[in-house]
Design a protein around this nucleic acid. Structure first.
Lengths: 145, 145
DNA sequence: AGAAAAATAATACATTGATACAATAAGACA
DNA sequence: TGTCTTATTGTATCAATGTATTATTTTTCT
């Protein structure tokens, strides 16, 4: 039995979609401190059974919160409250990650003995490859809506 | 305590599966020469405990590298860096790593919602920063970390 | 009413974890 | 020395988890 169970109330008559109701209520619980950092949420199937809805609807709510960096969904493991729940810090963290990844990319490639031109070249190649992959096929994308 | 312990970093938020992260980082170490031919890797359970994951996930990474003839897994004995890893093969691995690093860099940054210009910009910034650090000699920057 | 879009559900899938198993090594003991 | 037992190693199988794709239902708009 998880913390969430029995604490989410769905209004099936509401104009607000179920997945938004779920996401909103979880958001509130985090804001109130009812859900603490690192805490595990019920699985999509558990919560879906509780609420008598399809687990994909719960998954959609989770994905929304995941993209907002409020929770962390991990395939095969479960979903957890994100370690950094502060909205103010998010942008800073995000930018720091960008710097970190750039630094890491440079460090590791040059440590392998590649020259700067080679490293940049590899990135360009990859960019072009990604372009042709995402434009050509009948694209399934993630960040839609 | 094995060479690997404490040198593999997992990102549980990444879209990249854990077993691929592990395999990739081991490959990286071999390409860098941090892991030498014949050297024993930690057991699947050891490494799994370190990383706080299930040992089957480590086993999967090992199996991947085993199939690629980079390591040799032996039931009841342990896993070792493959004895007959030819220089040509190491070179191949090295190039594969370059591609992988580029792909990973792009994937993770765009997953965080950064645009291509932002990503490239971050890399340029980092390059310049590195330049000024290495030319203005505060020190022998070696391969630490 | 009919078409388009959004929300929800159904199904198949990939990743991770739990558990039991098989092979090898190491030590005990006759 | 030889064999037995035990511990340690990777392997196989299946369950549990979130994800992706597609279909169906519901809502919205004209």
């Amino acid at each position: 039995m998880n913390t969430l169970s029995g604490r989410i109330r769905l209004d099936f008559h509401s104009a607000e979609p179920l997945y938004l109701q779920i996401a909103g209520q979880i958001e509130q619980m985090v804001a109130r401190g009812d859900l603490k950092v690192g805490e595990q949420l019920p699985t999509v199937r558990e919560l879906a059974t509780e609420l008598r809805i399809n687990f994909n609807t719960v998954a959609r709510a989770y994905r929304l919160l995941d993209e907002a960096r409020l929770i962390s969904t991990q395939r095969g493991r479960g979903t957890y409250i994100w370690e950094e729940a502060s909205p103010a810090m998010l942008e800073q963290i995000r930018n720091r990650r960008l710097e970190e990844m750039a630094r890491h990319y440079l460090e590791e490639t040059t440590r392998l003995g590649f020259t700067l031109p080679e490293v940049i070249r590899a990135l360009q190649t990859r960019i072009e490859k990604t372009r042709s992959e995402t434009s050509a096929p009948e694209g399934s994308r993630r960040g839609e809506e």
